[in-house]
């Protein structure tokens, strides 16, 4: 199946923090809104990002209004809506807004599972990365929830 997605800053930062940005190469098309890239530039753009075949795009945010979302999240959602792409975000509010708007949305845990599902990493690596995501990154996710995700790797 062809996979096309647009990402906000969250998964790009969190996957970089566990040295796993290359998992995003699973996507046939990966778009990054300019607003999101500017957010990354305000911190440190992960070095590994330059090795990924992503496309910088402008976002037309007309029709995307949510005070709960930051500029990057709104831009990524706008691109996902207009181009009918999967939205990649780790923000629960962005996830709900996108889902309510009919956009398919997934986060860093899903990208790790995707890497496992497509054979880029084995089960042990996937579990290890999920643990690292919870313990070593700026992503807040409850430990017990990550354990549930790891168990699901064995159930399917």
């Amino acid at each position: 199946m062809t996979l096309a997605a647009v990402s906000d800053a969250g998964p790009l930062i969190h996957l970089a923090e566990i040295d796993s940005l290359e998992l995003l190469a699973t996507f046939n098309t990966l778009l990054v809104p300019e607003t999101v890239y500017e957010e990354l530039e305000a911190g440190d753009v992960p070095d590994e990002l330059s090795a990924l075949p992503f496309e910088l795009v402008k976002a037309d945010e007309n029709g995307v209004e949510s005070e709960e979302l930051d500029a990057g999240e709104r831009a990524a959602l706008a691109v996902a809506l207009r181009r009918e792409l999967v939205l990649l975000t780790d923000d629960l509010a962005a996830r709900k807004t996108a889902s309510d708007a009919g956009v398919e949305v997934h986060g860093s845990i899903g990208i790790i599972a995707l890497g496992y599902g497509r054979g880029l990493i084995d089960r042990g690596q996937a579990a290890s990365l999920m643990h690292a995501l919870q313990r070593e990154t700026s992503l807040f996710v409850t430990e017990a929830v990550v354990e549930r995700g790891i168990r699901m790797l064995d159930e399917q």
Binding site: H106, I109, V145, Q156
Partner: peptide
């Protein structure tokens, strides 16, 4: 979070 992770893993393994 649980709902999001369950959706994500299910998608990742089947996409």
């Amino acid at each position: 979070e649980r709902a999001a992770v369950e959706e994500d893993v299910d998608w990742g393994l089947n996409a």
